[in-house]
Each structure stands twice: as structure tokens, then as C-alpha cells.
Design a protein around this nucleic acid. Structure first.
Lengths: 341, 341
DNA sequence: ATTAGCACTCAACGGGGTCGAGTGCCACCG
DNA sequence: CGGTGGCACTCGACCCCGTTGAGTGCTAAT
């Protein structure tokens, strides 16, 4: 029916107006600003129906309507399309990211850039240790009884771990272990490593050293597995303090959630991406208590079909979804490209 | 004179009451809550004198008085003493920090702990690369034409830098360079290194390799010098969103300043410590625009007379100075102790 | 199905009065 | 001369209340 189509159109108009003006939107301004071709009274009927279905709601009796989480969801899923960035913006992104000198720099620039583009809080997860192929392992004696295990991934991430070594460990054992480890792991991801790794490597060594070798291998495996190693960086928290926010009840819990990186990581990892490669969580869809008035837009970066990690933008449910989605996707893509080349 | 002493006492009382209640304090509540032994009228005269001298001010005509930055300054310098932590608190701090497994963990725990203790934003600067003695240097070939320079400090901090190596560089040159570098720098701080370092090291090599050797040494020097390598971590930003803050005008600029780590580092480095080892900057004493209603309490950690870096707490000028100062100092001390042992 | 008309609701705003905390000043006192 | 009680004064906070206007839902007409 015609009316059904118009209702949907009305919902889109409400979302767009509300995001722009931050004010509940009434039937009159709606017909004025959008070419709906009908009278306010008709719109009112549509709005009543939309409210009945739970897509919009009234803050109080004589106010305009505001989208609900369900309304935003429909908007994101069916009513909006990701608007492409302007060529100028694209060039700016590329230029800014291309200047980075190493991985830390890339990540740092990416997160600032995303915060800038979206005018929201941006988060970037470092390329996951377990999903990146390893480029090189190194064992460095740093004291008589201590070794440093250095792990270098294809993405350029470098992690180190200190471990105790038996006193008087022969020099050549370390060299041998380094060579064997590299031969076994270089160019592979955690998932591709032979199982059980510690046996595989230890076999080649005299029994007296096997215990030590196993310890090293296990430390390596732990480091690659541990979730504590999923690093995250963040920028743009100041954008939270925009005018017109209910501060104590909104901004504080969000800041708390942001400091609990575990929560953030969990959220990011739970988000399923749609066909366009962008994932959106709206308000109460985030189970975490402090984020029920917050939406998150995320995308993976890395090679096609082999995501390394995620980036995201986080802001009030009343956010510019098409714009945010496009920025997040664009930054994720350039990030992928840079890490690939 | 007696009256002069009492005025000072009145100022102290005003600061203490105001910090506690967050309300301008009047003459009556002052005599009720503190044993000043005189009548409100007398206090009023004292307050008029204090206002005349610029230590306190009235938000509006019929309100109580509020300390000015100058008032807080006098309070911090002469009217308060750092209150020692309870033994229970001290044990808790020690226990919490002692559980840390490596430097990253120590720093991370320290900053969270400080935020928790002070109920404010806490910052911890990593042990400065240029002020720490170096423990070990390592050169690791990671690709045909790339080397990783790994720097390990006595404090346990590990930094790495990638550099291009001439193709076909003989293996033994790298080993030789590693050995020479370690012999030259191990156990020394940047300031103690022979000058010019690149000549000193390069001499020992055949002319054909000297260019490369110089590049490595210069990269090392740069890394030790660059201010971008002064890392900082932060916690407790959510404490900024306490009730009763003028949000848009206070919290936002502070968050922005916090993200500009350069600003923070500059501030920390500028702060001069008093005899008790604690430095305080109050309100407008911070030149940086966004922090004019913010105070910072900082202390150095590291060996006596050889500070490694600083930690600090940051909050509204209306803060509990004695308490914050004591927490900052305590955490700095334990940090020093842990890094020493 | 759409619309004009209309009665209704209610937040926002502003005027006006009261209250009370707190001050400054002055005359008085030990 | 420092301290004090008394007193007039100021001014923000609060409440009451009437007005306004945006926006709604309903109904009858098209």
C-alpha cells in the first residue's frame, strides 16, 4: 500500500531530523522540511502507527517524536545507505595515514583520524597476535638467568616477554632454539602451527634441555593466546562532552566502560558485520550497563576474509549513522591497505 | 598579633569546609564547625581582610566565601601538612603493586591505584629512556634488508626501532656491532655516554661499514632523546564527571588536554617539587588554557636524586590537597622501591 | 485514504512574591 | 583597640501561577 511506504519514509525523516536538530520532531516541521506531499494530520496518523509499532516515542504528551532503539535499527538496516566520502576526504585520509613510520604510528594516526572524522570517540584494536602471521622470533639473553622473547608479526607489531632461563644454559642451545622456532612458526598464524607445538619443537633437543624448550614454547603460545595482549587505543573522549548531554548519567558510565578495556574488547568481538562490512550496535543492544544510550559502529580491517582486528566509533544513539559508518569503513579499508603493503 | 594568626586559621577553615561541602562558606557555619572562639561578626571582619588580600572571593553579594587560586596556594604552602596514609592503606598499595609481573603491569597498576586512591584522574609517565641506565641492546635481522634495534633499560622498559640495513651486510658485522654497543652503553645513562658516540663506535669498524654503524648509533641516540618516546598512561577520567561540575566548560577542555600528551608532559616536566617531594600547580598557574580550573599534584619517582619520571593526579582546584598529595607521594615511593628492587 | 478543524495537554517561560543566608557597618564594651 | 551584638541591606533560590505555543488525538467532512 501507499500508506505503508509513506510511514517508512516518515520514520526516516524523523531519524534524520532528530539527529540533526537534537529536538523531538513534530508533524508540522516534518511536512515543511521533507516533501511528503500530505498534511500534518496525515503524518500524525502515521506517527501514531509508528509509535504503536515501537519505532518512535514521545518524551512527554505534547512533544514531538523521537526514534527508539528499534527505530534506529530499522533506519540503519533498511532506510539508509552509507554515504561515500568525498574525494577530498579520501585523499586526506590516505595522505595522513601514509605518513606513518611504524605500526604504533599507524594505529595512533588512525584512531585520531577516526575521532576527527566522526566527531566521536574512536577505538582501534591492534592487529591481533593470534590472527597475524608471525614474521620472526628472537631470543635475547639479557642477564645471566634471563631471556627476552621477542615476537614480531607480519603487521609489524612487536611484543616481548621476559622469562627465566636455567643458569649456565649453553649459548648454542639458544641459537639452535631460535633457528628451530623460526623455521617452525615464521610465516604462519597461531591457528596454522603444528600441534602440540611444544613436543614438535622439543623433540629436536637433548633431554636435558627439553624442559626449558617447552617453557619457552609455552610462553610463546600463551602470549599469542592471552586476551590481555589485545591492545586497544582510543581518542576523542572529549567529544563525549558535547553540549546537550545528560552528563552524570551518560558520560560517566561511558568513560568507565572505556577504561575497562576488557568490556570494549568483548563488545567489539561480539559485533557481527553486515554485507557492507560494517557492524552497528544500538543502545540497549549493548548489554553492558553503562552503554545503553550509546551506539557503536565497528568494522574489521586486515586482508579480505582474514580480519586482523577491529576499529570502531562510539557515540550517543542519536548519531549520524550513515556518516559514521562511512568513516569507519573508509579508515578500516585504508588501514588494511597500508598493512598489506 | 593574635588577629593575624586567626585570619590564617580562618582561611584554612574556609578551604577545608569548601572542599568538603562544595558550597561557599559563611561566617556562621565557620564558627559552628571550627572552634574559633569568636563570634561570626569577628570572622566577617577577618574575611573582609582576606578578600582584600585576594585569598578568598564571593561568587555573588549575599553568598559565602570561596578560596581563590592564591588562597589554595597559601593553604598548600603553609597551612596544610600532608596527612600520612593509614597502615592499612599502605599495605594495600604495597600488595597491589608487588603483584605486578613486568614494567607495563607495574605502570598500569600504579595508575589505576592512584586514580582509585585520589578519586581523580591519574597519570603515570614511563621511566624516561634518557634518564635510565641501559641494560642491554640487541640487533635482530628481521628481513633481508631490515634490522630491529631493541633497547632494554634497567627499569625494564623495552623499546624497539626498525631500520634499513644495507643488503648483504655480513653477519659478523652485526654481531660485532652488538658487542661493541653493549660494551659501550650497558649500565650507563644517555648523559654518561661518550661523546660523540657515533665516532667512538664507528672507529672500530672497516671504513666500508662505518656509514651503516653511524646510522645505527644515531637511531639509538634519537630514540633515547625524542620526546615522542616519553610515554604516558592515564586512568580515572570518569572521575571528572562528578556531580556538580560545570561540564561543557570544564570537563571538555580537560579531556582535550589529556589527549594532547605533549601538553601533559610539558606540564609535568615544568613542575618544581618542594622539600617534601611533591609539586602542586593550582588553577591559573597552569598556563595551558583548558586547565585553568584544574590543579595538578605531581611527584617524581626513581632513585633519590635521580628521578626517572613523574606521576600525578589531576582534578578541580577544589580538591583535597593534603589527601591527594599524600597518595601521590606514597605511590611514587612504592614505585621507586619496586623499580629499585 | 486524506484532511480541516478543534479541544486538549503540557513543557517552557516569565513575573512576582517570599525566604533566608550572608554581608557590611556601626555603636558599644571590656 | 580588638571583639561583639544588632541591624539594615542585598540577592540568589524557590515557589506559585498565569500565559503561551507546540504538538497531539479525535472526529466529521471530503
Amino acid at each position: 500500500m501507499v500508506s505503508e511506504d509513506r510511514r517508512i519514509e516518515v520514520l526516516r525523516a524523523i531519524v534524520e531530523d532528530y539527529v540533526q536538530t537534537r529536538e523531538p520532531v513534530g508533524s508540522r516541521v516534518l511536512v515543511e522540511r521533507h516533501r511528503l506531499g500530505v498534511s500534518p494530520a496525515t503524518i500524525r496518523n502515521d506517527m501514531a502507527a509508528l509509535e504503536e509499532s515501537g519505532y518512535i516515542t514521545q518524551p512527554h504528551t505534547s512533544a514531538g517524536r523521537v526514534p527508539t532503539d528499534k527505530g534506529y535499527r530499522l533506519f540503519v538496516d533498511r532506510l539508509s545507505q552509507i554515504k561515500p566520502l568525498s574525494p577530498a576526504e579520501q585523499r586526506a585520509i590516505r595522505a595522513f595515514l601514509d605518513d606513518a613510520v611504524d605500526l604504533d604510528d599507524v594505529v595512533d594516526r588512525a584512531v585520531r583520524l577516526l575521532a576527527q572524522l566522526t566527531q566521536q570517540v574512536a577505538v582501534v584494536q591492534y592487529p591481533s597476535l593470534r590472527r597475524t602471521a608471525l614474521r620472526h622470533l628472537e631470543l635475547v639473553p639479557i642477564e645471566r638467568d634471563r631471556l627476552l622473547l621477542v615476537i614480531i608479526t607480519e603487521a609489524g607489531r612487536v611484543e616481548q616477554r621476559v622469562l627465566e632461563a636455567p643458569d649456565g644454559l649453553p649459548e648454542h642451545i639458544i641459537g639452535e632454539l631460535r633457528a628451530r622456532l623460526n623455521a617452525t612458526v615464521a610465516g604462519r598464524r597461531l591457528a596454522d602451527l603444528p600441534e602440540p607445538l611444544d613436543d614438535t619443537v622439543a623433540q629436536a633437543f637433548p633431554v636435558s634441555e627439553q624442559e626449558f624448550v617447552r617453557r619457552v614454547v609455552r610462553l610463546l603460545e600463551e602470549t599469542l593466546t592471552e586476551t590481555t595482549e589485545e591492545r586497544i587505543v582510543m581518542a576523542g573522549t572529549a567529544h563525549l562532552a558535547r553540549s546537550g548531554m545528560d552528563f552524570v548519567h551518560t558520560i560517566r558510565p561511558v568513560l568507565e566502560a572505556l577504561e575497562e578495556q576488557v568490556v570494549l574488547l568483548k563488545l567489539l568481538s561480539e559485533m557481527a558485520e553486515d554485507s557492507a562490512g560494517v557492524a552497528v550496535r544500538i543502545g540497549h543492544e549493548n548489554r553492558y550497563e553503562g552503554l545503553t544510550e550509546t551506539s557503536i559502529v565497528a568494522a574489521s580491517y586486515g586482508a579480505e576474509g582474514q580480519p586482523l582486528a577491529r576499529i570502531g566509533a562510539l557515540g550517543p544513539t542519536r548519531m549520524d549513522y550513515p556518516g559514521t559508518m562511512s568513516s569507519v569503513r573508509a579508515v578500516a579499508r585504508y588501514l588494511s591497505r597500508i598493512l598489506a603493503g
